[in-house]
Design a protein around this nucleic acid. Structure first.
Lengths: 228, 228
DNA sequence: TCGTCACTGAACGGAACTCGATCATATCCA
DNA sequence: TGGATATGATCGAGTTCCGTTCAGTGACGA
């Protein structure tokens, strides 16, 4: 089973946030243009100050078009959040392909590198943290995003690197994901390039936490790492 | 120097959020009533869906009264956040007095216990996490809240338990605070009583992180702990 | 009794959101 | 192939809701 397959970027169980599924090609483009506009707006004025008019204008569309696709203002931001999470997962896979992980801590490094890279290059990536918390209000029953990502990550770690496939593994990976997420967001809070002290400490903390259970000995290199 | 003194609950350098300082007694009551109402509203409908009318109504006041004390809607939430942070610090001090910490990890335990206790009993305590992130937009220059708390905590740890008073200490305590905050918020995300697995793991993680630098050996018990 | 503090709620402005009219594209049939 | 028709997609003026103001009224202290 390939790493890319495990992360299975297509099977994103998307929420019901889209009002009308796009039929014609142009509407698919519209959808992504709207999200691009929202992402720009996030960087320009921050979450709260975004207006639907602002999104429409930046996307070269009218207000009505926004509401054709999304039921309300918040739904646009949720959709942006989902797309951002998706792109993060894609980037993690790309990192895997660029420098195949030889051990479980390389996986952690890839994920951190992907996160940092996107924070620096992807417009509106700041939205990664806000919705994690915000979601709880909206959809009570829905599982937490970080839990979903953590579960998939745990599968990779178990399948490819021999970490024991217990329920505990998922829990621990979720702890690691939560910690990493908060420390990385902190790293970018006042520094647009990310404060390296926090980024480095994030790598160390997550590594040490998982190593306290799974040590370095469990690592099962599958392929030699490629120097990049 | 006493623990309470270090946490020095009075010297909260309050932001400029209040429009008119209360002169008569009744207006001081109004202020706290308004914040109580806002806190209830946070629990009832969540941050975004709070309206000024809702706050006024719950407080038994008119719209105009809200705006007499706060310049805008966001300011009310910021004030609630500050009061919540203050109460958290007070509760930490109470925990100290209830069971005087004998070592630095008792301090960590007290802080976690205080956080969990307030999350369970204090209306609107959920606001603790949101503003941490949100603040960054509003006041660019202002230091992060967690940084402020971490700094004071670091002073206690250095002063009372002999942890080395280096700049590194503050940084590490801030890392610890960020991790604890995220894990505890996660604990309450789907469980109003707090998921004990996350709470317990939070204690363990923070302890292990700090112990990796300062070990158990550095602990300097000042007074025997009181059984409660 | 007077002056100041506190409170009220109708009115204003702006942003979220709706909906019927209009344009663009796909499908069908001669 | 071209034109008719249906349906997807877009538009934007209009409606509603909400944040905010302010002039008028009530309450308290001197």
């Amino acid at each position: 089973m390939s790493l890319a397959g495990l992360f299975d970027v297509d099977s994103a169980a998307t929420g019901q946030q889209v009002r009308a599924e796009p039929i014609q090609r142009r509407s698919a483009e519209r959808l992504s243009t709207l999200l691009d506009a929202a992402a720009e707006a996030v960087d320009a004025v921050g979450f709260d100050r975004i207006t639907t008019a602002m999104i429409a204008e930046r996307a070269g569309a009218s207000i009505g078009t926004v509401y054709r696709y999304y039921p309300d203002r918040v739904a646009v931001l949720q959709a942006l959040h989902e797309r951002t999470v998706l792109r993060f997962r894609q980037r993690v896979v790309e990192e895997f392909e660029a420098s195949p992980p030889a051990s479980w801590w390389d996986v952690v490094d890839c994920a951190v590198t992907a996160f940092v890279g996107l924070y620096r290059s992807e417009p509106g990536f700041r939205i990664m943290q806000f919705a994690d918390r915000e979601r709880a209000n909206a959809a009570e029953g829905v599982n937490v995003e970080s839990g979903f990502f953590a579960t998939r990550l745990a599968i990779v770690l178990a399948d490819r690197f021999g970490l024991p496939d217990e329920p505990q593994l998922i829990f621990r990976v979720e702890i690691a994901v939560e910690m990493a997420n908060s420390l990385l967001c902190r790293a970018f809070l006042n520094d647009p390039l990310g404060d390296d002290r926090f980024i480095d400490e994030c790598r160390r903390v997550v590594h040490d936490y998982l190593a306290s259970f799974y040590g370095a000995a469990v690592a099962v290199p599958v392929a030699p790492p490629i120097a990049v």
